[in-house]
Amino acid sequence: MSSCPDYIIEFMHEYLDEEIPEEHKQELKEHLQICADCKQHFNELVKTVALVQSTSHIQTPENFTEKVMMHLPREKKKVGIKRWFGRHPILTAAAVFIIFMTASVFASWNQDDNFSVTKNKNIIIENNTTAVVPEGKTVEGDIVVKNGDIRIEGKVDGNVTIINGNNYLASAGTVTGEIEEINKVFDWLWHKIKDISSEVLQLFNSDKDAK
């Protein structure tokens, strides 16, 4: 056999893998007829395969399935929640939306803690924290003061809104509209909503007027 080419053994394995091309098969067949050593090698391989395949089926232990089921981990809450999200995409989207909305509301509440006031030539700023409407002057239109106080000694022809601050209305001062003080997030939110809805209403009314 030592004189036989190596590929004869290769052909044997191709045969056992059931992947032997026809011409290899022919060559192997012819070789096995003339070479006793190779024939023996081949027979031993065939026998080996048969022996391995002959091993009897081993019985699976009793209660195997029950034991597996007993050992399955309890469903984790996390998995449950994940699955719930997976199955309720719209609710998930709504929840995410609400989270972002809340976050942005708080962010915009906290964001601008600088003093600001509606621009008007008749408003004077004191100490960078107080807006003053001096005596004898008249501000036409609404005033919004953020993160600061307002002292009104003159006249305001409109509404006054103070966010995060106080208003001091001098006895001589007058405001023709409403005075509103907002110091809490929810007040502020409410104010925003009122603002938006009154704008919408106005739009609606002007629409009607146009008709």
Partner: peptide
């Protein structure tokens, strides 16, 4: 979908092969 018992059927189908 969370059906525990359906897995039991899978175990039953494959236990022999896997144990072997």
């Amino acid at each position: 979908k969370g059906d525990h018992n359906a897995f039991g059927e899978i175990v039953e189908l494959y236990k022999s092969k896997v144990y072997q």
